[in-house]
Design a protein around this nucleic acid. Structure first.
Lengths: 114, 114
DNA sequence: TCACTATTTAACTATTTAGTTAATTAACTG
DNA sequence: CAGTTAATTAACTAAATAGTTAAATAGTGA
């Protein structure tokens, strides 16, 4: 039960329904029913996913009449992005090697084409 | 119980012990005992964490005598980084607004200093 | 006030997770 | 071979997760 900030964020993102909800919020505020619509899932299940996202501060909620509109709150994603920084050199390095390899392939192909 | 690739990766990262293990592997290959040393936890617990990381393909393991050295395998982190791309404009935008605000503060301060 | 819509809460269940202790496997070393 | 070190497996437990159905709450509007 890790209570730390990053663990809570990663945990919240470790579910495809919740990631889809976040993606859907990139186009703007949505009601709970709007968000629920694409999923083959009951409303209480969606309410629970929203609570997980809210506790992780990935969304914020307000009230408009009987609606509880949700909007994206991207700060925790920024924290993950910053955490990622220490690993970037590793996967960028392997990407560079891939690029080198692809360049070699291309060079070989050009030779064949001559 | 999401079996998809991104969920598995996020799930593996949603634990401070596992993130610390990854960080420790940035300085190179380590044995299980090396990795276990900083934690107040039994060896079987560490073995389980390593299995989670291995299933998520965040580490790879080999054998050297009685040791099972682990090394970082950063590809899944790259996938997260790419997933993040769709959100970057959101948190970069709010960072820009913060920058603007700080510039305004600075401008005000300079005026006061005149 | 009554009925309707939007959403949440309660109570329950099945599965997964993170840890433990005790026992086992594997490889080295005297 | 006997003993030691490295690591895993088995069996168990407590807590968390993701879902369900049924009931409750809150706001709108005739």
């Amino acid at each position: 039960m890790p209570a730390d900030h990053l663990s809570t964020t990663f945990q919240a993102l470790a579910d495809p329904t919740r990631r889809a909800i976040l993606a859907s919020l990139t186009t703007g505020e949505k009601t709970v029913s709007d968000l629920a619509e694409p999923f083959d899932m009951t409303m209480p299940a969606i309410t629970k996913h929203l609570k997980v996202l809210e506790k992780a501060k990935l969304i914020e909620r307000s009230r408009k009449a009987q609606y509880r509109p949700c909007r994206l709150q991207p700060e925790p994603l920024k924290d993950i992005d910053e955490w990622m920084e220490q690993y970037r050199k590793f996967f960028e390095a392997s990407f560079d090697r891939l690029e080198d390899y692809l360049k070699q392939l291309q060079a070989k192909k050009e030779k064949t084409d001559e």
